[in-house]
Design a protein around this nucleic acid. Structure first.
Lengths: 335, 335
DNA sequence: TTGTAAGCGTTATCAA
DNA sequence: TTGATAACGCTTACAA
């Protein structure tokens, strides 16, 4: 940095200010400095900056036992935005025991020099975790939490609306007798997806047959069992709406045992648009969750919150809703 | 750190030495310091350490357009080991144009304060990239590169041996007429897997039918086309060995169009053990690549290389072979 | 709008 | 085996 300063005949402070985009620099000076930086190929030393500014530019991502596909997309999305914004991501895995999430976190947070953390499900649904975070005065953003507390920054998607739209799609294709496989009872998304489904049916004036709604747990295995209940019935539904892609894949598997061809004998739709959806045959019609975008939005929000910590007048948005997309592939036939 | 030093009545230097595991500390002193560290809940400031030690504890992971599943496992594996060793991972995405990988890299490396980089495929197969790395005197480790140059540190798996063993498994189940779908012609793994296959056949005294060996490109789509060529034959093979799981999934899809039941009418095996392998029905017999372990091993090797940079007498291993695993599931039947 | 001086928390160096 | 002191490269706080 000294080189640059000498090169333009100014003090290091001016260079520093230019590099940090501070407003109190004359444009001409700024440009001169920028040129010198380019010319000399100068890059600031991150450690020195962090040390002096008492900021680490480290962001935490707390996770536990997630679906690998979900985690991977989240990670990639977060990583990319981090690179853009000059942050670094520290991925922290909590233990699998729900009771200790908060303790684990406390341990890791103590003396870690994180500027903020991103909290995806299911960790964000532990009130103790959020409480610990607040105790540390650590900025955080939750992703798709079960409940949206008023003072908690969140990034989310409208699961209810997505399920509603998917059900409408089935209805438009002439299906009237639709089976539904629920997600995990502890997760709000399950409830929302079911709500969207039943509301669409209600709005179309179709009475919901409770025998057609079976419990699943978002796992392949649970989906297989649920499909069994739906398909073993002599009077089968013409379409099945599985609350996620893994369970939809399980419906495919079980349908084969009954010699049912998809979509001719049975239409199937899923939710999430994981890689699974394109690799099973026929390719699955599903809802695309913008997971990577969520991570990006969460990072944006987090950096605002960090800014707010220094300048409390600043009032960042606390909730950000992202759009889903209904992806039509080959698993739905006209009835 | 001062607190700790005062607490044990010693200088900060001693504390520093204990924390860095230096040998020249009396065990009694070490223990006392450690206790104080525990008691006071002291955590070193990473930025300050990096600044003083002129090490960043940042490691780069250079990637481009990888299979999401592969990347995700690699990432998670690398991340975990990084956490253990006190490193941080900076994930760098190169552009998709092969011509510019090295340039991209040069740009990112200039002034970035990375201590070393991990180079997974396909980036590690660009000689210019390796050359650039050497020019920067930047320690690096390649993962599963196409060619193993003598002075290049690598972590790899024995693809040939794995394919050999898989073919033996098929042979043991009584299959004699086995179709093979090749991987991408530019990737050495394709060649090795095919070598293993043909060698196993040769060792069993079976002549290889060249019509049974069809080109694929590791993609679902290419696998589908390849399967078509194999299955449209009136005299069909009794088993198909696809060079990866995605292509095996495509064989499943195509088999359905011919009303072939797996494994009764057709046995199928894959390679990689991606999540796909467990989500398709019936679950796929395949080879598990220890991707996360490779990342871990690469990190170990990298930290040795970084050590060597300071202490050139030190001679770390330059190649590390990891074990694969043959995972038997439900896609192979006795013939 | 720019500059000066002090210090951020650690480790390297040299001396004891 | 331990300690004193000077960096490390940058930013904050204040002064000009």
């Amino acid at each position: 940095m000294r080189h640059v300063a000498e090169h333009v005949g100014m003090s290091m402070m001016t260079v520093s200010r230019v590099l940090n985009n501070e407003s109190s620099v004359k444009p001409a000076t700024r440009e001169k400095v920028m040129n010198a930086v380019q010319e000399l190929g100068y890059r600031p030393n991150i450690s020195a900056r962090n040390l002096a500014a008492a900021q680490s530019y480290f962001l935490g991502l707390i996770y536990d036992n997630p679906s690998a596909a979900y985690m991977s997309e989240l990670l990639l999305g977060a990583l990319e935005r981090c690179n853009q914004k000059g942050y670094h991501l520290v991925v922290q895995s909590c233990g699998p025991e729900a009771a200790t999430w908060a303790d684990e976190l406390t341990k890791r947070l103590t003396g870690s020099h994180l500027d903020g953390v991103i909290v995806p499900p299911p960790v964000c649904d532990d009130p103790k975790v959020l409480e610990a975070l607040r105790r540390f005065d650590m900025p955080y953003v939750c992703i798709s939490p079960n409940s949206q507390l008023p003072d908690t920054p969140v990034v989310y998607m409208d699961d209810r609306q997505a399920a509603y739209q998917m059900t409408q799609h089935l209805l438009e294709q002439g299906h009237r007798d639709i089976g539904f496989i629920l997600g995990h009872p502890n997760q709000e998304s399950s409830r929302l997806r079911y709500q969207g489904f039943s509301q669409a049916l209600g709005d179309a004036g179709i009475r919901i047959d409770e025998l057609r709604v079976v419990q699943g747990f978002y796992s392949y295995k649970s989906g297989f069992a649920a499909a069994e209940r739906l398909l073993s019935d002599t009077h089968r539904p013409t379409a099945i709406f599985a609350s996620n892609d893994d369970m939809a894949a399980a419906v495919y598997a079980n349908a084969q045992r009954y010699n049912l061809r998809i979509p001719d004998d049975l239409s199937v739709v899923g939710f999430d648009d994981t890689p699974t959806a394109s690799i099973i045959y026929p390719a699955l019609t599903t809802i695309r969750q913008p997971i990577a975008e969520m991570a990006g939005a969460a990072l944006d929000m987090l950096s605002e919150l960090i800014k707010k910590k220094k300048d409390p007048d600043f009032e960042p948005e606390l909730r950000h809703k992202l759009d889903f997309e209904l992806i039509q592939r080959d698993s739905v036939a006209r009835k």
